[in-house]
Computed example of a mutant assay.
Amino acid sequence: MNTVEGRWFKSTYSSAQGDDCVEVAFGEGAVLVRDSKDTVRPHLTVRREEWCRLLEFAART
């Protein structure tokens, strides 16, 4: 799953110190998730349906 460089973005809930940051990018049919402190490591790929379920769950908790 490839993304266009520069399409990664950080959550607005990330800490101000930058030590608790997750970045996401939207690929074709999937959401890509990575640690913003270690962008060289492979990212996690999640189907969009599962990403939506995760966000719905997080909004309820």
Rank of each mutant, 00 (worst) to 15 (best):
P42Q: 08
F57N: 02
T61S: 04
R47C: 06
R60Q: 08
S14L: 11
R41L: 14
E49H: 13
E28L: 08
R53T: 05
P42V: 07
R53A: 09
N2R: 11
V33I: 06
K10G: 00
R48G: 10
D38N: 13
T12F: 13
V40S: 14
R41D: 12
D20H: 07
V46Q: 00
L55W: 01
W8I: 06
D19L: 13
E50I: 02
L44H: 10
L55E: 01
Y13S: 06
V24E: 09
L55T: 04
A59Q: 11
M1A: 14
N2V: 10
A25S: 07
K10W: 00
C52W: 08
A59I: 00
E50Q: 03
V24M: 07
E28P: 10
S15C: 07
D20N: 13
R41Y: 09
V31E: 04
T12I: 14
S36M: 05
E50W: 01
T12G: 15
H43D: 13
A25M: 01
T45L: 05
S14W: 09
V46M: 00
F26N: 06
D19A: 13
K37F: 02
S36F: 06
W51T: 00
D20A: 09
R53M: 03
A58Q: 01
V24D: 04
T45W: 05
T12V: 15
C52T: 13
A59F: 04
K37A: 11
V31S: 02
R48H: 12
R48W: 04
R7T: 14
L32E: 11
F9G: 04
M1V: 14
M1G: 14
W8F: 03
A58L: 11
E23P: 04
D38M: 04
V22N: 06
E56S: 13
V31H: 02
A30Q: 15
T45A: 11
K10L: 03
F26A: 12
V4R: 10
V22R: 09
H43E: 14
E50G: 07
F26I: 08
